[in-house]
């Protein structure tokens, strides 16, 4: 039996509100605002209050998928990543670094954006990296 609150940051706009995720025995059971946070000050909007509802949604992707005809088949991580590395490598070899593009993400963390641009710039040697900042 374990109940705690994990403090994190809301994902539903740029305000940067604090979110306490109530975790009971390894599952999220609710959300509390944080009264001591300088921006959200103990409040949230309806999106913030419900920020964790999709985390265990049945539609969540739980395994890598590889295209098969019109649909997908499940694949192992090794197979999927190998396939990406291999095919991207082939395109790189045939058409050069500028034929590959990367979309970073305004929804992912700073560290993840850093790593993706580092991958694009150091391994593929392209500056073709952008995200939907403008959208």
């Amino acid at each position: 039996m374990q109940y705690e609150n994990v403090r994190t940051t809301c994902i539903y706009c740029g305000c940067g509100c604090a979110i306490n995720l109530q975790v009971l025995d390894g599952e999220i059971v609710g959300v509390f605002p944080d009264p001591q946070h300088p921006i959200s000050r103990g409040s949230l909007c309806i999106k913030g209050w419900n920020v964790a509802s999709f985390v265990r949604h049945p539609d969540r992707l739980a395994t890598p998928l590889v295209r098969q005809g019109e649909g997908f088949r499940e694949a192992s991580w090794d197979e999927a990543l190998q396939l990406v590395a291999e095919r991207m490598g082939a395109i790189y070899a045939a058409s050069g670094p500028q034929s590959i593009g990367f979309l970073a993400s305004a929804k992912c963390t700073n560290e993840e954006n850093y790593l993706l641009q580092k991958l694009a710039r150091t391994i593929v040697r392209t500056n073709n990296i952008d995200h939907c900042a403008r959208l």
């Binding site: 940051t9 993400s105 954006n113 641009q117």
Partner: peptide, 11 residues
């Protein structure tokens, strides 16, 4: 949520 960060970190 992190459009600022994605810009800051070179995305």
């Amino acid at each position: 949520n992190n459009v600022q960060g994605a810009c800051d970190l070179g995305g």
